[in-house]
Design a protein around this nucleic acid. Structure first.
Lengths: 228, 228
DNA sequence: CAAGTATTCAAGTAATCGCGCAAATACACA
DNA sequence: TGTGTATTTGCGCGATTACTTGAATACTTG
């Protein structure tokens, strides 16, 4: 026999758990991370996460019924996006909590960095300030679409795959800062390693556009691409 | 064939998903909510959530392997507590996201309030200011242990069950504000209803001590109870 | 209107989860 | 050292979940 407050609590926590369940699969978290960089089609998401299209579609359904993502039919494709900026911020907080509480997270990233020979020198807030003030040359090494969907003002788009061929665009006498999706994104790590090999002074900024926006700072978008 | 970055991502998101999995069961969220009010024994938690002791123990194991709670043997009992204040803040953020994205949450709370005939008049920040400045009589209607583990400075402890018998302690000419665990806790609602029936001017404060602390404000504790 | 393509749906399978029950363990206290 | 109590563990059941494969659906576009 259940009393009214008990029924109420059960219903309420069941709702909260809807979010928890949606966040319980690694691939869904990866999808959310990608979507926090900008809208994507099912195929692109399947590609980037290394799962089948049908599987990606299913995961996206789950995220949609948890109201974390929204979809829109655009021509032949279905474009998925985060349902709200708050979702992106929440994902960041989840990752921060994991970083804080699960020592394995740091072990995994550290061993990956070691394996790549990328010694990390992170200056955190100081680096952010220099990026904000334009003291350094900032490159956004994410895919072009993500740059278009929102990027740090003043940053130039050089997807990591093109970096080797476009080195001559970069001035050797200025410090270079590379960023990508966030603290666990590996593209900026590769970029910095490559730049240093070629004699540049390069640093990685851990923050991505989600953090940037969360601080209340302006992000730039390419207006011509947001039209349907 | 998996490339090194893919392996890295898989391992990383698997870790993040550990938190998601821990948050995927309604009862575990309820346990975390209770624990954010202060430490509790297994038996007490089982009681408060309406599950068997064995079941509660199992859920607590899951939360412990996700490093969200910690346990300590105290005499004959095992006391569980949040592993970090950040966990409490995170739970609040989860609930805020649910409130924002899942309209069902508001429907459920609204229908519960209607059923209780408790018309909600919430003044939010203004009410908080008055509580902080001591303009009102503040009562903490949670169980005594939770009050002892941390409460709003100046609040007096009147567990909701004792309220009817202790009405005469309260001044009729001053406004009364009742609070309990947070926005979804029903005890303050009951308290306000009872007070109004008896001619008091009473209001509910939605925030609990977790929110209070998250704002950087001081919480008071009963020192003599925190000794082992 | 027909053909092609992106996405979703449906069915099957192996694995996991939540829960109840009963037994085992661990520990304080007499 | 024994006894009582709090907690954990093991086991079995039904339900859910993730993933694959193959077919269906809904579009656009020629």
């Amino acid at each position: 026999m259940e009393t009214p407050p008990r029924i109420f609590k059960n219903k309420l926590y069941e709702q909260f758990a809807r979010l928890g369940k949606a966040l319980a699969a690694p691939k869904r978290l990866e999808l959310l991370d990608l979507l926090s960089q900008g809208p994507r089609t099912v195929e692109a998401l399947a590609d980037l996460t290394g799962i089948t299209i049908a599987n990606a579609s299913q995961h996206l359904q789950v995220l949609r019924t948890a109201r974390l993502v929204a979809s829109e039919k655009l021509g032949l494709f279905v474009e998925y996006r985060l349902a709200d900026e708050a979702v992106g911020r929440f994902i960041v907080q989840l990752q921060e909590l994991a970083q804080l509480r699960l020592t394995e997270v740091e072990q995994i990233t550290r061993s990956y960095l070691d394996e790549r020979g990328a010694l990390e020198a992170v200056y955190g807030e100081e680096l952010l300030r220099r990026v904000r003030d334009g003291d350094v040359t900032v490159i956004d090494v994410r895919p072009r679409e993500e740059y278009a969907a929102g990027h740090v003002p003043g940053a130039i788009s050089i997807p990591v795959g093109e970096l080797a061929a476009r080195l001559k665009e970069l001035p050797k006498q200025r410090d270079i800062v590379a960023y990508c999706r966030g603290p666990y994104c590996v593209m900026a790590i590769e970029a910095v390693a490559l730049l240093r090999e070629h004699g540049y002074t390069a640093q990685r900024m851990e923050q991505g556009v989600v953090d940037w926006r969360a601080r209340g700072w302006q992000v730039a978008v390419e207006p011509q691409l947001r039209q349907s």
